[in-house]
């Protein structure tokens, strides 16, 4: 099989800490793009459940994770028994503006 996809989007489905507009816009642009990606309901829930899928995601060298604070994401993976490689980039939807997130994902940014 080819390598796993390199974009992981966390929907943070169990809390309202990521601005709803940001989540909606990022998911919409991902959906409209021609790229393959992984989307998970909530990385925290996966970590608490020690989901083995986190290890596979961590193994995808050069992945971009769109979720929340990088320190939180890194230690969520660790709590589930997976170490994120140094090359993994974490984009923080709690603070970053949508255009910045889309640029990080190399998706087109619509200008008003």
């Amino acid at each position: 099989m080819p390598n796993p996809t390199r974009i992981l989007y966390c929907h943070c489905a169990y809390a309202q800490v990521v601005p709803a507009d940001t989540k909606a816009a990022v998911l919409e642009q991902l959906s409209a793009s021609g790229v393959s990606f992984e989307a998970v309901p909530d990385l925290c829930e996966m970590s608490a459940r020690r989901d083995p899928g986190l290890a596979d995601i961590a193994a995808a060298d050069g992945a971009t994770i769109v979720a929340c604070y990088p320190r939180a994401v890194r230690w969520l993976f660790s709590a589930a028994g997976s170490v994120l490689p140094e090359g993994v980039r974490v984009v923080n939807m709690r603070v970053a503006e949508v255009p910045e997130i889309l640029l990080a994902l190399e998706l087109p940014v619509e200008t008003p």
């Binding site: 099989m1 390598n3 489905a13 989307a39 596979d56």
Partner: peptide
Amino acid sequence: LRQLLESGYGVTRVATGTGMAALPGE
């Protein structure tokens, strides 16, 4: 995508012109 995620499903989107990749988890 929205409804699947909000119902607790992890989703792999396989885009047009590509094939299946290795899926995370078991």
